[in-house]
Nucleic acid binder design. Structure first.
Lengths: 221, 221
DNA sequence: GCTGACGAGATTGTTGACAATATCGTTGAT
DNA sequence: ATCAACGATATTGTCAACAATCTCGTCAGC
């Protein structure tokens, strides 16, 4: 980001992205304080923009701001992660319902294309690529539902997942079952079974939380 | 708010509340520009605080901020209101599900108490009071679900409903059916039927949107 | 009369300085 | 050695002045 020192200074949302990314990849760990001056030095932004970005991230629940102590990366309890997943089940389930009901042929084609690539990842045991394609799959459903309000709220429901957890999230077993879920949902979409697709999405996300919880309990034992 | 000129200046969130209220009660109408200096004069806050509040409200979707043109009250299309209600169906439905599953006796007692008061409102034809108690009823369900994440997101899902719409929202017919819904849900909660209660909540909110849409189409014809 | 350029005033965006508070090492008493 | 009071430094919160941009009335030219 600071490779070209002569470019325009970053805007507020860009700083927010920058911090978000660093939290996701584990360069900022839970509890770590986010000192404004450090972020200014590393990004070249002005203080107002940095403060604006931090406030935004506080709204997303990623950082915590205490008066006169500044921002620090929030560490969520397992129970809070459960609540986040519960909200995702509700919203993404609804998105799946509406996606199925609207069923644009072009969208379905894109979904099938993605599905083929996901199948390939399972065959090749490529968990990293699978993770990215998986994100795209979920985003496609949400965008395709045509509900921007739900899309907005889901964007703010990102779990502050640590790097170590992430790396072990997609073991071979999980990869297979997740992909099987995807294929089952695709079938229901093609059949126009909106209620069934919604239920499937909810259990799919619920299973994701179970997996995460299992890993976390192993991780801390 | 400025009745006592010697009190401490209002904080950011307080300004946000102040503006929110004025939008809800129709003193700020959709499209109206919110000039920073005016808000400063009327609330006694500093400019930074006002700007902070407006940014927050932009995040909630209540106001729109254009560069060098400032904030104005956003007017949502009927389709966007539909999306909002769709999100509320998903989240409040899930909240109802979890509330039923957790079923704290003290909470249920409070709910029954509220229900009695609502019944009285229907008898007395007191739509204003009914509206307030209705809000409380919904909030009780959400709080009682124990999911703060969902509670947070629902708080940001308030529809910018105009005063005129609001006044005709609770006609006698609507009052009766809404209250019947509430009583049916209470029965399901007592029976421990979480899935049924969730479905009932979803259709209840869906009906609310239908009513709103019907009024709006009458209003603009 | 109509149109477009122009400029004064109004409004928002940004920056930097200053105030308020926390942090942390130091010192001195017990 | 321990601990509390203190002070220097670091960090955040607030505000006011300045810069950038928009708005709208005015006026010259056609």
């Amino acid at each position: 980001m600071q490779s070209e020192p002569a470019t325009r200074p970053p805007t507020g949302p860009e700083i927010a992205d920058w911090v978000r990314q660093r939290i996701r990849t584990g360069r900022f760990v839970p509890g770590q304080r986010l000192v404004e001056v450090d972020i200014i030095r590393q990004t070249g932004a002005s203080r107002s923009k940095v403060r604006e970005a931090l406030k935004r991230l506080e709204g997303e629940g990623l950082v915590e701001i205490e008066e006169f102590r500044g921002a620090s990366v929030r560490s969520s309890t397992l129970d809070e992660v459960r609540q986040i997943y519960r909200a995702r089940m509700a919203l993404e389930g609804m998105a799946m319902h509406d996606f199925t009901a609207r069923a644009d042929p072009a969208m379905i084609a894109r979904l099938q294309d993605l599905q083929d690539q996901l199948d390939a990842c399972v065959q090749d045991r490529a968990p990293d690529r699978f993770g990215r394609l998986n994100n795209e799959w979920h985003r496609l459903i949400v965008e395709g539902s045509g509900n921007k309000v739900i899309a907005d709220h889901l964007q703010r429901l990102n779990v502050p997942i640590h790097r170590l957890l992430f790396e072990s999230f997609y073991d071979e077993e999980r990869l297979k079952t997740a992909n099987a879920d995807h294929r089952a949902m695709l079938a229901m979409i093609l059949a126009g079974d909106a209620d069934g697709a919604e239920r499937a999405m909810r259990t799919h996300i619920g299973d994701g939380f179970e997996t995460l919880a299992r890993i976390e309990s192993e991780f801390y034992s």
